[in-house]
């Protein structure tokens, strides 16, 4: 069962979600990776560490146009004979995977959280993380997108050969006019640690203590929906059922009540710490560790202790 993994490397780097997809593919079968743009061959060769045998690089397509990438994927499926196509469920995967599925008439299991089950079904997130569904793909060719941070990758120490891949991608009807980079170094959907805050923080001017704690942990910052709606924080930080769904190793929530719609987006987190003045806050029911206290006092103290810990370890 040979596997093709498509990853977006337009940033010039191989993101963690991409390594996870490669590792996932290699657990299913011999894996070829496809990417496009101008990333260095050395970074691509290192994908061998996560199980890739070969990497195909298309240099002609330099944007993330889902139509062009779909054509490249279809051509690579043809040339490698792959029967399983894997992509991370990142922003590009969300656009490309359904197109590939429709083009190849290959069923798509979207948002896998584990390797395929023994019976071939794929366990995916449903109901915004409130449950899982086991999807049976009825077609011979199968497309799977992988939820970021769902599996622990291990390095196997291999190296992959890199080949240039030329195929007719067709033309693009989408013109990129401008790219605006987001501030902050840790991207929320891939972050292993997330520090999040809600209306309990009272105003945007108070977010310094949230950002300071995040910095000490190398964490991304997030927020509850009302906080993004009122404009205290940018929309892309909004987590929950109608925002981003995340599953970091550690989620620290301060001044968030823990409404069901908020929990839906974060209850895939491995460990949840809740800081709230109200001992009755519903969030404590979903927490592993709880601190009944004032975020304005607890967050700086926690930051101080983290820094002490980091200095010693």
């Amino acid at each position: 069962m040979s596997v093709l993994v498509y990853i977006d490397t337009l940033s010039g780097e191989v993101a963690k979600a991409a390594m996870e997809a490669v590792f996932y593919g290699s657990k299913i079968g011999p894996t070829t990776v496809l990417t496009n743009g101008s990333i260095s061959e050395d970074s691509l060769a290192s994908l061998g560490e996560f199980g890739a045998e070969k990497v195909l690089l298309n240099k002609a397509v330099t944007t993330n146009d889902s139509s062009q990438i779909t054509n490249l994927v279809a051509a690579a499926v043809e040339s490698t004979g792959a029967t399983t196509i894997v992509m991370p469920l990142d922003l590009t995967g969300r656009a490309v995977a359904p197109r590939v599925s429709a083009k190849l008439k290959a069923g798509l299991a979207s948002g896998a959280v584990t390797l395929p089950n023994a019976d071939g079904t794929v366990k995916v997130n449903v109901f915004s993380g409130k449950a899982f569904g086991n999807v049976a793909i009825k077609t011979d060719k199968k497309v799977i997108t992988l939820t970021p941070n769902s599996l622990q990758i291990e390095s196997t120490g291999g190296s992959a050969s890199v080949e240039e891949f030329n195929a007719d991608a067709g033309s693009s009807n989408i013109t990129v006019k401008e790219v605006r980079k987001q501030e902050g170094d840790v991207l929320l959907p891939e972050a292993e640690i997330v520090v999040s805050a809600g209306r309990g923080l009272k105003g945007p001017e108070n977010w310094g203590i949230v950002e300071d704690l995040a910095k000490s942990l190398g964490a991304a910052t997030a927020c509850s929906r009302p906080v993004a709606d009122i404009g205290w924080r940018p929309h892309h930080e909004h987590v929950g059922q109608t925002g981003v769904a995340i599953r970091p190793n550690l989620y620290i929530a301060a001044g968030i009540s823990g409404a069901i719609q908020h929990l839906a987006g974060v209850n895939g987190s491995k460990v949840i710490v809740v800081i709230n003045t109200d001992p009755e806050a519903p969030f404590f029911k979903a927490a592993d560790y709880g601190v009944v206290g004032d975020a304005f006092e607890v967050l700086p103290k926690l930051k101080e202790e983290i820094e002490k810990f980091k200095a010693q370890n």
Binding site: G107, A109, K130, A136, I137, D288, G290, K301
Partner: peptide
């Protein structure tokens, strides 16, 4: 092209451990 064969709920969370502020 696909069907949902079965569903499952996430395992129940163990109790919250409280830490003094």
């Amino acid at each position: 092209l696909t069907t949902f064969q079965s569903y499952e709920l996430p395992p129940a969370k163990s109790d919250c451990k409280y830490v003094d502020p």
